[in-house]
Design a protein around this nucleic acid. Structure first.
Lengths: 157, 157
DNA sequence: TATTTAGTTCAGTAATTTATGAACTAACGA
DNA sequence: TCGTTAGTTCATAAATTACTGAACTAAATA
């Protein structure tokens, strides 16, 4: 598992990114490694050694990522190892998760309006406006995706 | 500082939401309280008492939120207290932060393509596609916002 | 059947994060 | 000038999180 300095650096940066998104450090590094490594599929031991983390940490990280659908693995007959790789469908999921998170926020904010009793409705104006924007965004997103698909279709032609 | 059960509940839920977005628990609860409370502005002591957190935790939370531009305060002559409230401009900022985060991810992914040496370009197809989508989204967002503003302008008329 | 491989499990610890309480400061008001 | 108010600061404690190493399992291979 030869990794250039640039690769190691990027693994850490991707690691920190995913840490900030709620992943455990070791889990986040595994994602980084699988993204950045020249080989698209890595074995348990390759991961453990490349990142210099214990077998337990590796096991924990891989199972967590398998359970959450971030990675998957392939096998080869006559080889007992599993080879782990990023689930490529995961990009869309990852984006959807971000959008779901905004949606969750929006639900909370709608409840804020229901629950608090402010003297004047003036206090609610900004909040209502933000809620309305998030609703609009959510509604428009599908057609935005369609437009993008249309555009890429044309570009390939 | 009378808070209904529903208000307390919502403060916790908003708290958990913001914890998941990287805020410290106490900080996240302060945001929840300022959102949910009937009074739009609360003093240091009111916050400390309503959330049942120490003065140091309160001080820490308020200063952190002031520094990051999430809250601001007003004062009244003849009253030494500061009254803290959510910065309403903050909604747009909060959304922008989410988008910036996606943008940061996109930058990392572009670097992934530069750094790794995959045998076949086939491995890069999905990733390139996701990058292209994020670029498109970023580019389209301003006009999406404009459209929404246009729509709300019409609705008010 | 014995050995190696590919992991898993879990108790314990290291590291990190978060909150407390007590002592302090700075400004105001009596 | 003395007390009170409105906080701040910091050492420390408590809680939580993340990782390790050792012992284990289950299947495959010799």
């Amino acid at each position: 598992m030869a990794l250039s300095d640039k690769q190691r650096e990027l693994i850490e940066e991707i690691g920190i990114y995913h840490e900030n998104n709620g992943f455990q450090p070791a889990v986040a590094r595994v994602v980084g490694l699988l993204l950045v490594s020249d080989k698209p599929e890595l074995s348990f031991d390759e991961i453990s050694e490349a990142l210099n983390i214990s077998k337990s940490a590796t096991s924990n990280a891989l199972n967590m990522l398998l359970n959450t659908g971030h990675i998957e693995y392939t096998t080869f007959s006559g080889d007992r190892k599993r080879y782990f790789k990023i689930k490529s469908s995961n990009w869309r999921d990852l984006f959807n998760k971000k959008m779901d998170d905004l949606s969750a926020l929006n639900d909370l904010l709608k409840r804020v309006l229901e629950v608090r009793k402010r003297e004047s409705p003036a206090y609610d104006v900004q909040l209502r406006s933000f809620i309305s924007f998030l609703d609009y965004l959510k509604q428009q997103l599908p057609s935005l995706i369609e437009q993008w698909e249309e555009k890429t279709r044309k570009e390939r032609a």
